[in-house]
Design a protein around this nucleic acid. Structure first.
Lengths: 339, 339
DNA sequence: GAATAATACGAAAACGTTTTAGTGTTGACA
DNA sequence: TGTCAACACTAAAACGTTTTCGTATTATTC
């Protein structure tokens, strides 16, 4: 086991000062060619690598980004992480991932843990509990300390920071409109409670499309689930009672599960009943029939978030201007609707 | 914007020394009750939190774990991360996630980046390229520096370190045996090339079960895909030519895709042809029919890995004893086989 | 030959902690 | 009154860097 070598070790070995070693390794003009060559050769031989922690302490820059998300076993979030990781890594940053598991307390603890010097900035998506409580003091504290924050997807207007979302309302609007254009008459919505910012937006888009149409809104055709968990019985009852001919679901799982239910009843997809979900994950692609979805472009979202964050981190300026980037959703047409 | 307060600030404000402040905050016996109360009150008022970086530099402990995996948009790996995160977080550790994207070079770069002080240990699963090349020098260098490493799932015997795997051979053996017991005669295997340690193990289990049975091995019934990518045409051709009555796939995607293919041909699952896959992900659960799988218990694997790593990190002893933990796979029975 | 400039290097502070080894003051005891 | 211990605190080193400022030596100029 050979321990890491430090500047001090090199200095002692070569009988020069630490400053000389440091400068020599940086190819400073101050140091003679002879000394530089000697030091660099020695450093290379012993595989010297500067200690990141020491540099962080000196520079007050860690080159770490904290990512706090509610859940990682979720296709959308993993694609976002991938996008963040890609961009961040190319810029020499590491990504520290923390999971809030939809819990307010965990979100707070994780942020506090990271905010004490471990990271240069946060990228996060709010836990459902946080959105329900509407308590954003942990975010405000962090921004007040001058730590940049980028919120994505599950955001709030109550915190001043950069934000990245897709136009969820537009996505739901386009999907609903698609159903209307295809002559569907009983267009249902399966969603979660409105405290989730995204669910609310999506519901709005659904409502808007229906209001603009001849169909109008029928509250009975809207199923609001209490939590993110699948309540299989609730969906079953809902579909049996309402017998819609089209269903918009706020995620893939609701959609795929619903498809199986109606298929068991002998209905044909998309002739008898059509489906559109949100999130372009593996489920949608490999479902039978494959599911038409509103793609959220998670990877792009991650990249944009990382870019905004790193720009803020690296900009010397203390401008307090924040922007919200709105990405366009795309309808990915598959076999769960006519085409 | 209020900047973070340091020990020095408190010391100056209260006209005591930095050491006194440090000790007072630690409730040291050396400090008088008066002073302790004064310091602690002040610290609380100004929300003092020690700087993690400074502590890391002092202690030579970062309380960070580096996780290097090939891919994050993959259910198995995300469950492992969740397991790691859960355990690590409970122990006060943060998780830095790096993606090798199945690339040897990225794996090396990521490890080098983290090995210079950023983390206390690694948990990793090898990239396919690394396994193909068989070059593990980056791992050896790290272990030689005394940085503990835990390999999981995609491992190698060429590096001395702790390891966690599931018994892939046993899983495949049990699955194949299940088919045999159910009277299947033409049992096919769809796998990837053998350089992936897990594929090899699974193939062995499949072969072993067949050899022990009256059926024996038929090489034609084995399809080896070149890469992890789905080659849809290859699978289509294979199924058409061989017409198996049972198929074991090394992942969910191969299985779900295959199921759709045979359903389009009018075959009934599981009567005409049965399927078992690996990885208990969302796809298996929501596929139609739902897919029987060999569950890999990713979350458990993550927890065990994190536990082994943190034990090593925190054990003072310099024992050079390494263990390999083998987790038992479980067959999760669903509708893609008779039951 | 003296003043100046250029060269090559080192000392020391700084980042924010922790911790060891003092140090000065007080009170008790013989 | 001198010794010793207890108490409450401080100085300083250490972790591994970077960087500013200072300085000794040599070279250049008039």
């Amino acid at each position: 086991m050979k321990a890491k070598i430090t500047l001090k070790d090199i200095a002692r070995e070569l009988e020069v000062s630490i400053s000389t070693v440091s400068k020599a390794l940086k190819n400073s003009e101050e140091i003679s060619r002879d000394t530089k060559e000697k030091v660099q050769a020695f450093a290379k031989l012993y595989n010297y690598k500067p200690n990141n922690i020491a540099i962080s302490l000196k520079n007050k820059r860690t080159k770490n980004i904290g990512v706090v998300i509610p859940d990682i076993v979720h296709h959308f979030f993993t694609t976002v992480i991938r996008g963040i990781e890609k961009y961040a890594n190319a810029k020499g940053y590491n990504v520290i991932v923390c999971l809030s598991e939809e819990s307010f307390d965990k979100e707070v603890i994780n942020m506090e843990m990271l905010a004490n010097g471990s990271i240069d900035g946060f990228i996060m998506s709010l836990s459902s509990e946080t959105q329900r409580k509407g308590d954003y003091n942990h975010l405000k504290e962090v921004t007040e300390q001058g730590i940049p924050v980028v919120l994505f997807d599950r955001i709030t207007q109550e915190v001043e920071c950069d934000k990245v979302v897709i136009d969820d309302e537009l996505g739901a609007y386009q999907a609903t409109k698609k159903f209307i254009d295809q002559g569907k008459k009983k267009i249902a919505l399966i969603t979660t409670d409105d405290y989730l910012s995204v669910s609310k937006e999506r519901t709005n888009g659904y409502l808007k499309a229906l209001q603009e149409s001849a169909l109008g809104v029928n509250e009975d055709l809207m199923l609001k689930m209490d939590s993110m968990e699948m309540d299989e019985q609730a969906i079953k009852d809902f579909l049996n009672e309402q017998e819609p001919d089209a269903v918009l679901c706020v995620n893939e799982i609701f959609a795929v599960y619903s498809m199986r239910l109606v298929q068991e009843k002998g209905l044909k997809i998309p002739e008898d009943i059509a489906f559109i979900g949100f999130t372009d994950g593996v489920l949608s692609k490999y479902a039978n029939p494959s599911l038409t979805v509103v793609a959220q472009h998670g990877e792009k979202m991650g990249e944009v978030s990382a870019q905004m964050l790193i720009d803020k981190i690296e900009s010397e300026a203390e401008e307090e201007t924040y922007q919200t980037k709105i990405l366009e959703p795309t309808l990915v047409i598959r076999d769960s609707i006519a085409h």
